[in-house]
Write a protein that binds this DNA or RNA. Sequence first.
DNA 1: GTGGTTATTTCATTATTCGCAACGGCATTT
DNA 2: AAATGCCGTTGCGAATAATGAAATAACCAC
Lengths: 256, 256
Amino acid sequence: MSTVGKAISLLEMLGSGAPETALADLAKCAGFDKATTRRLLVSLIAHGLVEQDETTRLYRLGAGIARLALMREAQFPFLRMAAPVVEQLAAETGETVHLSEYSKRGLITVQVIESAKANRVSVQLGDVLPMHATASGIAFLAFTEERVREGILTGPLPAFTPFTIGDVETLAEHIATARARGHSTGSQGYEEGVLSVAAPILGADGFAIGTIAVAAPQVRIHKGDIERHGASVAAAAHEIGERLFGPQGLPSRKRA
Amino acid sequence: MSTVGKAISLLEMLGSGAPETALADLAKCAGFDKATTRRLLVSLIAHGLVEQDETTRLYRLGAGIARLALMREAQFPFLRMAAPVVEQLAAETGETVHLSEYSKRGLITVQVIESAKANRVSVQLGDVLPMHATASGIAFLAFTEERVREGILTGPLPAFTPFTIGDVETLAEHIATARARGHSTGSQGYEEGVLSVAAPILGADGFAIGTIAVAAPQVRIHKGDIERHGASVAAAAHEIGERLFGPQGLPSRKRA
DNA sequence: GTGGTTATTTCATTATTCGCAACGGCATTT
DNA sequence: AAATGCCGTTGCGAATAATGAAATAACCAC
């Protein structure tokens, strides 16, 4: 593995789990030597991506991470543009709404507004959603490049619940349905008892760059709710796309 | 420079400047070989920290950055806790308010609420504020560890305007005054025509972890305004500290 | 087509990183 | 109070991974 790869996996380890981590724990979990781990951390600290508590010697993610994220948001204001639409959709549906952005590793949850109801679906910020097991994933696959879709269809489809789609044919069907309808549905594929409806947010090139989804406890979804929510998420997704890239279909500078 | 250092400087280059950058530009600006630059980028792409447009071949910061930042925010909800206080202070003063967090490189601007007035101070998200030339910096220095303060006092004090504090004695005086008052003032040290008032946000150990500041055009500040705003920022800073760490003075788990 | 530009790949060289092991500090234990 | 165990830090030869020049491939404009 490349050196930067190791450094980044340290960052990810620092991000997951406890807020602060000891050197020995990091080294053990990552499988690197203590010396190696520390040298990598020193490099990261020099650039502000990691901080170390002077007294406890524990390591944590640094403010440099936030800086990079802010610079990125300034260049491509995904959250700033999408946030009001997400809030509006949450208010309209009364259910948990979450927004995600595509990355090589999966769909990254970048905003969540939880339902005010006591029985609600909870999604963690920063969570990575599997493509084949969530409504968001299906919606994304239905509107992404052939290459990416093939990558998922030919890869493994790990089961998260007994209801997770496990075979390629069923998955392809769901994707086709989603493409035809403009929105997807997910039924307990990732968490039991949760129904979701999602729609893709399209980029300037017409391919999906992220998704927006409504997630609700199965017991609360009645006849017609799916269709209603489906129309709402699709409208919201379209609205976000227009806010980011101008009227859809009109060729505009990408991500400008 | 270490390999990860190079990789991180690429990330910073991608963050500053245009939203998307060509390989040749990156290599030239960073001073690396094209081959080296590309290999580093490939490693970063593999981990989602950088993305490449398939058609234009341009590189940009990836969603992995946002993911790390979200995980960090989940561990240490600085923004989530501070945001309402910042908004409140902005509403109360009617001027631009900005929040910053300490990092080895300086004070990183993590939130800005601009005044609604036509003539207003504008601060960029992600900007790094110099310690010696801003009200925020002075406030921070007044309440940081001796070691950090010494580092600044013994280092160079580059001038950004003709008013930037250039000698150590004056700087030390300003710091002492700020420590006594609980808030600092900055007068055109970073941008001409801008007056600022800042207060430190204290961590569990009593040392500053960031600052909150009010910035206004000099012409709008009248007698008494500085004192009034000073009291307001100090109160806001204290409020943020309490939200993060519980009642100040009470020993609590750090950053928990 | 053709020329010029830019991205990507290849490969031998070299510098950097690696992991072992020893050192030093700190706190709890005996 | 001395000893023990744990963790972080540092030094050094071995080995791996990074490097840069040059070749190749893709692309665009003309």
